[in-house]
Computed example of a mutant assay.
Amino acid sequence: MTATTTANPLDLLDNPFWYRDLPPERDVHSLHDGVYAITGNAAVRAALSHPDILAEHPLKASARAFGPNVLDADGSEHRSFRALLAPALSRGRIAEYQQQLMPDLVDALVDELLGVESSAFYDTYAHRVPYGIVCTILGIDRELESRFHSLTRPLARLLDFPTVESEQTHLNTAELLALIEEQRAERSGDGDSLLEKIERTRERKGITLSDSEVRSTALLFFIAGTETSSAFITSLVYCMGRQMFGMEELADETVRDAFIDETLRMFPPVQTAVRFAVEDVDIAGVTIPRHSAVLTSIAGANRDPRIFAHPDRFDVTRSHKDSMPFAAGAHSCPGMRLAKAEFGVLIDSIAGRCSQVAVTQDSRALESQAFAHPVDFTVRFTTK
Rank of each mutant, 00 (worst) to 15 (best):
Y122F: 13
L13N: 02
D33S: 15
S355Y: 04
A3I: 04
R313M: 15
P68N: 11
E167N: 00
V70C: 07
D257V: 10
A46I: 01
M266H: 05
R153A: 14
A42V: 06
S49Y: 09
V357D: 08
D74L: 06
S212E: 06
D257S: 13
D190S: 12
A277H: 06
E342R: 05
M1W: 09
M266D: 03
S355A: 13
F343C: 04
V214E: 08
H78T: 01
T254K: 11
G75S: 08
F308R: 07
T383Y: 04
R82P: 15
A156H: 08
Q98V: 02
G241V: 02
T226H: 02
Q356W: 01
Q168F: 07
V129P: 13
L236G: 03
V70N: 01
D11C: 12
D211Q: 05
L114D: 05
K197D: 10
T263M: 10
P311C: 06
E262N: 03
L85A: 11
G329H: 04
S235W: 09
D362T: 00
D33T: 12
I260A: 03
E196K: 14
A95D: 04
T217N: 12
E186A: 12
E196Q: 15
H50A: 10
E249Y: 11
L264Y: 05
A327C: 07
L209T: 02
T169H: 02
F81W: 11
L22K: 01
R275Y: 13
R93F: 11
G225F: 06
A108N: 09
L31H: 05
I38L: 09
P334I: 03
F343S: 00
E182L: 12
P305Q: 05
V237P: 01
A327V: 08
M1V: 12
L220A: 04
E249Q: 15
M324R: 01
S292W: 07
R318N: 07
A293Q: 12
A309I: 08
V134T: 09
P154S: 03
D192Q: 04
L89T: 03
R26I: 02
G139H: 14
D362L: 03
V44A: 14
R204I: 08
I133Q: 09
L338G: 12
V129N: 03
A365F: 07
